[in-house]
């Protein structure tokens, strides 16, 4: 039972990271209807910025995270302006390929700037876990911080999209861009804002991910990126609570699959569950069922 609880905690913690990344995917998809494949690599950039801030300049970890978030926000806006904005009217495939190009660019840029050698991400939190029940239930501080960060971010986003003017503009844009524009909403600024928020979250997720799995290379972001993307679809892409649900479930499935079934097959099981879910609910767990009109 305690072993099970341990896996549960690990799963929720990993899932929280996926959920934070998935938020970026889902918000961008909701508003720009594009699969932003470069999102995973923004995670990697964020992790590198934080790594250098902390290990080379000896800044405190929180400043490192803030710096990473700032750099990634700027990067996200820059990518959107240079690569995606000129393609607003283009086919979704053209945008997808451009996003892949941006992803390659970030990965290879990072490789040239920072070399492909593995960097060991510094431990921000004490590696001594909190032991409960006579040391049988171990909770790492990193896990607690990750779950807390996820909850705080989620609450902030729900408040932001529901209560603030900018958040309402975002929802209006994702529903109908033309109508939003007619109502005087600056659609381009709203889309930029979405990218900015998504990228800042990616930076935080990058730091949290590397705190749990401290191996940092230029391709670090690729796999969590794909998984988080899967999580967003799993929960229903475009839905913010869906990203949370999808992320946490995906993390739990991954940890349980590798603990109880097979480590090597954990990825395959994650993706198999995704396929089954999509077959039963084609728009994800919390996705809106769109009725087709002729």
């Amino acid at each position: 039972m305690l072993v099970f609880l341990n896996h549960l905690i690990n799963g929720v913690s990993l899932g929280s990271v996926y959920a934070i990344i998935a938020l970026g995917y889902t918000m961008v998809y909701g508003i720009a209807k594009m699969l932003n494949f470069a999102h995973g690599d923004v995670i990697m950039v964020g992790a590198y910025v934080c790594f250098f801030a902390v290990s080379s300049y000896n800044l405190p970890p929180l400043v490192g995270v803030a710096l990473a978030a700032a750099v990634c926000t700027a990067l996200g806006i820059l990518i959107e302006r240079l690569a995606y904005k000129p393609l607003r009217q283009a086919s979704s495939l053209a945008v997808l390929i451009t996003a892949i190009g941006v992803s390659y660019l970030l990965q290879n840029g990072a490789q040239i700037l920072w070399s492909s050698n593995i960097k060991m991400f510094p431990a921000f939190f004490s590696s001594q876990p909190i032991a409960l029940f006579g040391g049988e239930l171990k909770i790492t501080i990193a896990a607690i911080v990750t779950v807390l960060a996820c909850v705080v971010i989620m609450a902030a986003l729900v408040w932001f999209t529901g209560r603030t003017k900018m958040g309402k503009a975002m929802r209006a844009c994702s529903e109908d861009k033309a109508a939003a524009q007619l109502m005087g909403i600056n659609v381009n600024a709203t889309i930029s804002m979405t990218f900015a928020i998504g990228s800042a979250l990616a930076a935080i997720a990058g730091v949290l991910f590397c705190s749990a799995y401290p191996i940092l290379t230029p391709t670090t972001g690729a796999m969590p990126g794909i998984k988080a993307f899967t999580a967003a679809v799993f929960g229903g892409i475009g839905s913010i609570p869906g990203a949370l649900l999808g992320g946490v479930l995906l993390g739990m499935i991954e940890i349980f699959a590798s603990a109880y079934i097979s480590t090597q097959l954990s990825n395959a099981i994650v993706f198999a569950v995704l396929i089954v879910v999509l077959l039963v609910r084609p728009t994800g767990l919390l996705g809106k069922q769109v009725r087709e009109k002729v």
């Binding site: 699969l35 794909i226 993307f229 899967t230 679809v233 892409i237 090597q264 097959l265 990825n267 395959a268 993706f271 198999a272 995704l274 396929i275 999509l278 077959l279 084609p282 728009t283």
Partner: peptide, 28 residues
């Protein structure tokens, strides 16, 4: 057979998932 009932981006994701599953299976 099961997957082609989906449309658009969802079909794309399932094919992505399928590619990953194949890789895991062959690796083992």
């Amino acid at each position: 057979v099961p997957v082609l009932r989906l449309n658009g981006d969802y079909l794309a994701i399932v094919t992505l998932a399928f590619g990953q599953i194949i890789k895991s299976i062959v690796e083992n």
